[in-house]
């Protein structure tokens, strides 16, 4: 069955419409001004919904804007354009008490466990900082809460009075997770939480994140460049390229039937830890590098590296559309006229 036939066929995709949308991103743009009129369009018009209780994976190569999206969603950056609604409120309009509540409900876990913990604070104070800011616990209660949290993430009480430098990378990432959990968030943005860790430790942290999700009903936005890990942890995955989202589907569908040529190439480039499978498969090796986001190609941004490029691609940017139910793609190959 060709991709087009498949695309036109209505599959029995599970209806997810009855699930609650916790975060809705519409036409989000984030541009950085470099001076002398140069603008980096790091995120340039991205829309997606995240459902309560799911893990939404965001993948792409460096410079595709995935981390910028994470940072814009938690208001570390202000959006240039577009809207983000979290539980029905536009997050860029929030003020006062509502803003404080938002800051509590949305938390972030950072990539580098060495740089994201203050080296001059004890673990107790690092984890309790959120509790202090939101006035959730004091004194003995505060200490008890922190120790409980440390136990939840697999550390113990005696770690509370130590400083970050006394811990290994995996343990520090656990401290980062405890800090995020301290204020009882509903939504956690995990920006490459395991990239800096060793393989055997990565699995520990990922299993911990999955366990916590089950126990606390958390929703994750999981940002990473490791496709096998994203596939493993996510319910749905969005693929980004140079500031745009090019494809979005649930993870089995995306990995089983990728529609966008970039997703295909990305999947085929992932090394498989199996010598036979690795020799058998055909790899699509993309030529060249990702173009600069200061001066992106006209039309479809992927066209300079795309093995299936057409004339149309240089002229018009492809539309973001639902080709198969719950499977979105931005590519001219799936235009109606192409049938």
């Amino acid at each position: 069955m060709s991709k087009q036939e498949r695309a036109n066929q209505v599959t029995k995709a599970p209806a997810k419409n009855n699930r609650e949308v916790i975060l809705s991103v519409k036409g989000l743009k984030k541009h950085f001004h470099l001076g002398s009129g140069q603008v980096v369009k790091a995120v340039d018009g991205v829309s997606f919904d995240v459902y309560r209780g799911e893990t939404f994976g965001l993948v792409g190569e460096s410079g595709c804007g995935k981390s910028t999206i994470g940072r814009t969603l938690i208001r570390l950056y202000n959006a240039t354009e577009g809207s983000v609604t979290f539980k029905g409120d536009d997050i860029y309009q929030l003020k006062g008490k509502k803003l404080k509540e938002f800051n509590q409900k949305m938390q972030m876990i950072f990539q580098d466990p060495y740089a994201s913990l203050n080296p001059r604070m004890t673990v107790l104070n690092i984890v309790a900082e959120g509790l202090d800011i939101h006035g959730l616990a004091r004194g003995e209660e505060r200490r008890k809460r922190v120790i409980d949290l440390l136990k939840v993430v697999g550390l113990n009480a005696e770690h509370a009075n130590r400083f970050p430098h006394e811990f290994s990378g995996g343990q520090r990432q656990r401290i980062g997770i405890a800090r995020a959990l301290a204020v009882k968030p509903e939504f956690i943005i995990a920006d490459e939480p395991i990239s800096a860790l060793d393989v055997s430790i990565q699995a520990q942290v990922v299993n911990l994140l999955r366990k916590l999700q089950k126990e606390h009903g958390l929703t994750y936005l999981f940002i990473a460049h490791d496709l096998s890990m994203v596939k493993y942890i996510s319910d749905r995955v969005g693929v980004m390229y140079l500031g745009n989202m090019v494809e979005l589907a649930n993870s089995e569908e995306l990995y089983g039937h990728p529609l966008h040529p970039y997703t295909e190439a990305l999947l085929s480039a992932v090394p498989i830890p199996d010598p036979d499978a690795s020799k058998k498969r055909e790899r699509i090796i993309l030529e060249g590098d990702v173009p600069s986001p200061i001066n992106p190609p006209s039309g479809c941004r992927f066209r300079t590296r795309c093995p299936k490029v057409m004339e149309l691609c240089a002229i018009a940017a492809p539309e973001w559309k639902e080709v198969v139910p719950n499977h979105w793609v931005a590519c001219h190959l799936y235009d109606k006229e192409q049938k």
Partner: peptide, 15 residues
Amino acid sequence: SMPRLDLHHEQELLP
């Protein structure tokens, strides 16, 4: 402990 593309979502990683 390594995730693989052919690994199913429900399977646990064994760290």
